[in-house]
Structure formats: C-alpha cells, structure tokens
Simulated scan of single mutants.
Amino acid sequence: MPGIYITRGMTVSIPQFSIRFREDGEIESSPLTLHVRFDVCPTWVQIAKRHLAAALAARISRETAWQGTDEDAKAQALEVEFEASMQAIMAAAVAWDAAYAVLREHVTIPQAMTDTWRNGRTARYTQVAEVVRRAFSLKPKGAALLRSNLKEIYRYRDLAVHPSGKIEAPLLHPELNLGMEWRFVYFRALNAEVAVQAAAAMLWDLANNGKSKDPKVTEYQKTLATRLAEIFPEGAPVIPSRPAAK
C-alpha cells in the first residue's frame, strides 16, 4: 500500500512494532502497520441535527398551509414534516448504535448475559444501556434514566423500521386536533426535537462528564467530546421542556 489517507475523526493505532540492534551495528525492525477506525457516532448526530432543522422548518410550513384551504398543500406539508422527522429520529438512534459499537469493544459482558440477550431477543435499548452502564460505572439512578430515555428513542426507531401492517384507527394530532394516520402523529417536528436533543445531550454528558476506569474509553470520550463541540458550538444540547406525545 503506497500510503494511508487520514481524515479528521479517525483513530490511528500501531498494533505491533519492534526495533532491534544487531551485533553488527545495523538496525532491524518489524514492518510498521497502521490500524485505523472512524467513529460514525458524531456523523450520525450531525445528520440527525440536519434533519431536525428540516423538520422544524417543515413544521412552520405545515402551520402556514393549514391556515389556508388548499388541501393538496396541507397534505404535502404533513408528508414533508413526517419524512424529515422520521429521518432525524432514526439518525439519533443510529448515533447511539455507533457509540455502543465502540464501547462494546472495551466492556466485558458475562457469557450468561450474552446468551440471554441472544436467546431472549433482548431489546436493543437494554443492551446499549447495559454496555454504557458498565463502561462508565453508572449509578443506579443514572443508569435507569439512560435506559428510560433510550427506550423512547428506540421505540420511535422501531416504529419507523418495523411499522405495523394492520389497519388501525386514526390517532388525534394534538397540534391540529384532527384524527390522522399514526405516522403524522408520531413523526412530527416536536417529537423529533425531543428525540434528537435528548440523544445528543446524553452523548454530550457521557463524553464530558463520564468516569471510566478504562483508558481506552477515556480516550474515546475526549475524541467524542471534541467532535460534539464542533457540532454544537453553542454548548451542550438542551432537551425541550415540552414532552413528546405518546
């Protein structure tokens, strides 16, 4: 290989390298091999933030359209807000999947628990929360809060990835006070804002305030904190006070 292109956000390591001085004075060394890893967690946070901005703009357009009488414009506005909101929430969940993938390499899960996860088809959010708990030695209260928040984010992700094929009764859209398809109720800008900001805020908190005994996790924290600071130059993400509709 003639060379390696290193980009911002990449982690570079040298797994094995040795130098030996021979008796004749010559230096003998092993081949130098670089291993690289790119953490996509911040990338997905950036994608989630971008889609959230689109969802918030779509909400304004939807509010304007629904003040008029053009039914096609109303329907189109709902679709645009739905699509942007769904993508924002999906990206937020994937960001946590990416963080989990990195931390999982440095966390020991008992074989019995691994078997239970596999055989019992344990929910994804439960597995992610447990790995994070072990990586940062979270106290019970913090672990419970993390698990609860992740449960909601992954619930919305599952609605997008595994939607029900059943014909169901419409749900009340709380902002329009009309019965609608469930997708327009669950995947709207308000819920996307809560999900994305919560996902990013929890990652920010772990990156900046988490305490780990593993130096590799600590190193990952520093890299993650730097990249999140670039995505949120105004400071830590703030979770909206308005709760998402269930």
Score class of each variant (00 low, 15 high):
145 L>C: 06
158 D>Q: 02
157 R>S: 00
137 S>M: 07
159 L>Y: 13
107 V>K: 04
121 R>S: 09
166 K>L: 14
161 V>N: 00
162 H>D: 04
110 P>Q: 06
112 A>M: 06
125 Y>S: 06
130 E>M: 08
149 N>Y: 08
121 R>Q: 09
105 E>M: 12
168 E>D: 10
97 D>G: 15
83 E>D: 14
127 Q>K: 13
150 L>I: 01
148 S>D: 11
140 P>E: 03
173 H>E: 03
154 Y>P: 00
145 L>D: 11
158 D>P: 00
170 P>G: 11
119 N>G: 11
163 P>E: 01
96 W>F: 08
139 K>R: 09
95 A>P: 01
159 L>F: 10
84 A>G: 06
109 I>T: 14
132 V>F: 01
142 G>D: 12
108 T>M: 13
103 L>E: 00
159 L>D: 08
106 H>C: 03
169 A>W: 06
130 E>W: 04
101 A>N: 10
166 K>I: 05
158 D>C: 05
165 G>M: 07
141 K>S: 14
157 R>C: 00
151 K>F: 09
97 D>K: 08
133 R>T: 15
135 A>W: 04
145 L>R: 10
104 R>H: 11
98 A>Q: 13
123 A>Y: 10
96 W>D: 03
168 E>Q: 15
169 A>F: 10
164 S>Y: 05
172 L>S: 09
131 V>F: 03
134 R>F: 01
87 Q>W: 13
171 L>Q: 08
102 V>N: 02
127 Q>P: 03
84 A>D: 09
88 A>S: 06
121 R>Y: 05
123 A>L: 12
124 R>K: 14
123 A>P: 04
159 L>K: 09
127 Q>L: 12
87 Q>T: 12
104 R>Y: 10
126 T>S: 13
141 K>A: 15
154 Y>Q: 07
108 T>R: 14
167 I>K: 12
105 E>Q: 15
171 L>I: 03
125 Y>K: 01
90 M>R: 14
137 S>A: 14
111 Q>T: 15
159 L>A: 10
164 S>W: 04
145 L>V: 14
152 E>W: 15
97 D>N: 12
151 K>Q: 13
115 D>G: 08
111 Q>E: 15
150 L>Q: 00
135 A>D: 03
121 R>C: 02
110 P>N: 05
94 V>L: 05
162 H>P: 08
90 M>F: 11
132 V>R: 00
143 A>E: 07
124 R>V: 13
86 M>C: 11
107 V>T: 06
164 S>Q: 02
173 H>D: 09
147 R>S: 15
171 L>Y: 09
150 L>Y: 00
154 Y>E: 08
166 K>T: 12
99 A>M: 14
106 H>Y: 12
133 R>I: 09
133 R>M: 04
116 T>A: 15
89 I>W: 05
168 E>P: 05
106 H>Q: 11
147 R>L: 10
126 T>Y: 06
128 V>D: 02
118 R>G: 01
119 N>A: 11
159 L>W: 09
